[in-house]
Design a protein around this nucleic acid. Structure first.
Lengths: 246, 246
DNA sequence: CGCGATTTGTGCACGCCTTCACAAGCGCCT
DNA sequence: AGGCGCTTGTGAAGGCGTGCACAAATCGCG
């Protein structure tokens, strides 16, 4: 906590990786800060206060300051944070300067959408390969990529040095795909299939279950409804009948 | 209270307050328990121990017992939990017995996939309406539903009593869509667009950002890579897989 | 050159969540 | 009937995360 170096390569300026072990909660918020910072940079802002950035990222300003303090002292008291410096620093910490190669397994409904998702490419990731087990899907071209058979995974993963895999298959085949990914050297998996994957301890898995998110919302709906209905007895929410047709 | 009542409505059967205020962390895990229980039920299991269910859900058994204890005592010591009873109880708590109506705004790449996602219908939700602002999209039929113009939202939301809305639009229009949903009476929003939504305090928002998940994985890749360069790095990290959420 | 305004960085307290460890309860077997 | 093994439910402890409040630091201005 003495002087900050400005123009140098962030992080490893003096050879020592100096990898701070950030709290998980902080790591999960860094991408949100990064998005807010990019937005600020586009509007031409050179510096931003913790208050301003916190508002843009939807968090408490004290929390933001504490989060950023874990990366080191990259702000200036009385002024704020240098936007581009902070962008570089966070991108370095997240390893986004590597432009990481990602492969996607399962080109069904969801996989199709993910393959075409612009948000990946714009944020430091390259989807370099699409796989599916269905021969009818193999050969299909999506967003400039050709779907290949899952058996090719080993070869291509090695060629492209793919470290991150995305699973968008039906739940039944997710574990087998995960095993194949691990065997191919993938060490991080983003899983969209419901269910629990078992992987070696050195492999990180994150799970996104769209239905779970809705179920959590449903709970809060239920709670809200029962709170408003509680004094009177039963009122709202009992009127749910099937009215699908239209 | 040894005999379990089967056909009765779970929860408020015996006049108990019936709505415990569960910890957020518990609520987020209940859907995972529910999925594991459904899977167990299909295999014909009648009861399951906390150890078994915890393994199926990918969590610690003590945590599972504490979570379930918040719902009440639905287990039998020395035996385990009655699968179907527990399913009913969790579905009641989550409000899934209501078969909630959901609308989806934004029929782009991702929205298209979500509209056809079978996981919604199979877990207590009915997608009853699709909206888009693009006139070229209006009229398109997806999965048995016709895309309607966003201006129809108010009318249709009232007709179908839609309480949950899903936003799958580009980031620029997400806030406007959220405002429209709130104006139409929606009180829970699942947001797939990057960025922060501001909504009235009585509206719940959950956010799923696919790129953020990848960025978090990227961080761990970066960390692992920098650890292998260093000697003596302990790489325990045998964490459970966490679903997205705050 | 010094002072006040502003903003960062952080010590501290509080609350939530997780995990351990064990008593209480239940069924089965003898 | 009684004991034994198994499993739940929970008290307690520890860890983690959050938010407050304030000292330290920097800039601008008179």
């Amino acid at each position: 906590m003495s002087q900050q170096r400005h123009g140098s390569t962030p992080g490893e300026a003096d050879g020592v990786p100096a990898f701070p072990d950030l709290p998980e909660a902080t790591i999960a918020r860094l991408p949100e800060y990064l998005r807010a910072l990019h937005h600020l940079a586009e509007t031409g802002a050179e510096t931003v206060s913790s208050e301003g950035l916190a508002a843009a990222a939807g968090v408490n300003s004290a929390k933001l300051r504490k989060d950023l303090s874990h990366l080191g002292s990259y702000g200036t008291r009385g002024v704020g944070y240098d936007v581009t410096l902070l962008v570089d620093q966070i991108e370095y910490i997240l390893g986004l300067d590597k432009n990481r190669a990602v492969c996607l397994v399962g080109v069904g409904n969801l996989g199709h959408a993910l393959a075409g998702y612009a948000g990946f490419a714009s944020r430091g990731f390259r989807v370099v390969a699409l796989f599916d087990a269905d021969p009818k899907k193999v050969g299909e071209r999506i967003n400039g990529l050709t779907v290949q058979h899952i058996d090719e995974l080993n070869r291509i993963a090695a060629e492209e040095s793919i470290a991150i895999g995305v699973i968008a298959t039906p739940p039944g085949t997710a574990q087998a795909v995960a095993d194949a990914l691990v065997a191919a050297g993938v060490t991080s998996i983003l899983n969209f299939a419901p269910g629990v994957l078992s992987v070696p301890p050195n492999v990180d898995v994150r799970k996104v279950d769209l239905a779970i998110e809705l179920q959590i919302l449903s709970f809060h709906e239920h709670r809200k409804a029962s709170l408003t209905a509680l004094p009177g007895g039963r009122t709202a929410e009992a009127d749910n009948q099937e009215a699908v047709g239209s």
